[in-house]
Design a protein around this nucleic acid. Structure first.
Lengths: 156, 156
DNA sequence: CTAATTATCTTAGTGGCTAAGATATATATT
DNA sequence: AATATATATCTTAGCCACTAAGATAATTAG
């Protein structure tokens, strides 16, 4: 799974390269495609970038025609970033090889097996979120106060 | 799975931050921990960085005491990068929360289910590699010659 | 009505990256 | 043996995305 993750990052870098945007820009596009739209602040949260950096990200994406800025009428401090479907489709095409490869993999599993994989994907995501929280707690604890850390033992 | 991947990247950024190294530096450390040792050129390959950038990565890692350079006696152009286990252990501790969280997830699955997950992890990795190759081919094909790209349809 | 908070943008400065070329070693050709 | 080409790493100049700090504008609280 770690290797897949690393290889997936390389795939993303290649896509960003071809699309003429940075890796962070693409990361934001991915999130926007999942959520439809998001405020600049939310993008900063999910990417771990500062709000200043996000201004740059959105500037580049807007200039390239991938997104639009839209001020929220209810709270005029907020800026919603929304994807422009037509231009974004061009980036989408670059993911087709990945989608086809994954569908090929999935096709080798029964419905029951796929249900298990879906359960694991869901559980795993919760686990990663949990780990992120635990890491924060660990870093808030001064090193000398930390309980001894032990990696869990493999079962065999 | 995409969300897990994205969250995993954030986890890595936090680890790199605390360890006082860059994301690319940590990416190389991860690979070195998997493989034991690697040449500078191999690190460039797996990270997608130039060899010049890798020189910088290794400089920083060596200065921080995480790795050592060792010239290959058989081919004195080559430089093997090897991890220093003692100092690297400090970084390893930062992954404990992730390992614990994942073990907690895995503990909820039977041996048979875990075998299926392992099979999927292996198949999935092959799929990602395949997709990377296919993307290269796609980019080598001039846009006007490309067959129409279609995303596979979901089964339902 | 003032103060504090929130959301985004601006600016100066930094650091990791690429591209091109230098250096050193290895392999192939004549 | 001598020369040419290839390979592996390092060096350098220049670029660009990022952070940190602060400015601006809008909202909420006292």
């Amino acid at each position: 799974m770690r290797r897949s993750s690393a290889q997936g990052v390389l795939y993303g870098q290649a896509v960003a390269n071809v699309a003429g945007i940075s890796g962070s820009d693409l990361e934001c596009m991915d999130f926007l495609n999942l959520e439809g739209r998001a405020t600049a602040g939310r993008l900063a949260e999910v990417t771990g970038l500062t709000t200043g950096a996000i201004t740059g990200v959105v500037d580049r994406l807007e200039k390239a025609g991938y997104v639009r800025r839209e001020r929220d009428d209810a709270d005029r401090r907020k800026v919603f970033i929304t994807v422009v479907p037509e231009t974004t489709a061009e980036i989408g095409k670059l993911y087709v090889p990945m989608q086809q490869a994954m569908h090929k993999v999935w096709s080798r599993y029964s419905d029951e097996e796929l249900r298990l994989l879906l359960r694991f994907a869901t559980d795993g995501y919760k686990g990663v979120l949990e780990a992120t929280e635990a890491l924060k707690d660990l870093l808030d604890t001064p090193p000398e106060k930390r309980a001894d850390l032990k990696t869990p033992k493999p079962r065999r």
